[in-house]
Design a binder for these strands. Sequence first.
DNA 1: GCCAACGTTGGC
DNA 2: GCCAACGTTGGC
Length: 141
Amino acid sequence: MNHWLVKSEPETYSWSDLVRDKRTDWTGVRNYAARLHLRAMQVGDLVFVYHSGDDKSVVGIVKVVNEAHADSTDDTGQWECVDVAAVTDLPKPVTLAEIKANPKLAGMVLVRNSRLSVQPVSPTEWSMICKLGGLAKPPQA
DNA sequence: GCCAACGTTGGC
DNA sequence: GCCAACGTTGGC
């Protein structure tokens, strides 16, 4: 199983929207590198949700419930999305400042390439952020 | 509001 | 195929 991180502007679609919807198709990705990651996702993979903008925090975890398929919000037919379902929020959101300050996390794609909206997360990074986020044990797929 | 980083577009 | 110009993202 792989781990990922997706970004969203909370003004556009926030974690609370996701909790309300319970499940959503993660549309709107319009970047080739991000699309590669979407295509690599498998059902059961766990994904951090990060709020960009004012929040700048990892706020929750979703799981992939449907592999990549056509993005209904795209007219050109070239972009894809996966379906995700809410798993848990982080009791204590992990801020970008914390991530940058943590030597184990400072190498994250989130820090190195802040513009990539869908990105891989290493197992070490995953467990560290779960811990910082106040999860006693990381969720199972 | 500014600007750095990055991606895309289009002329050559 | 290169690269300048432009647009967008997102942190500060």
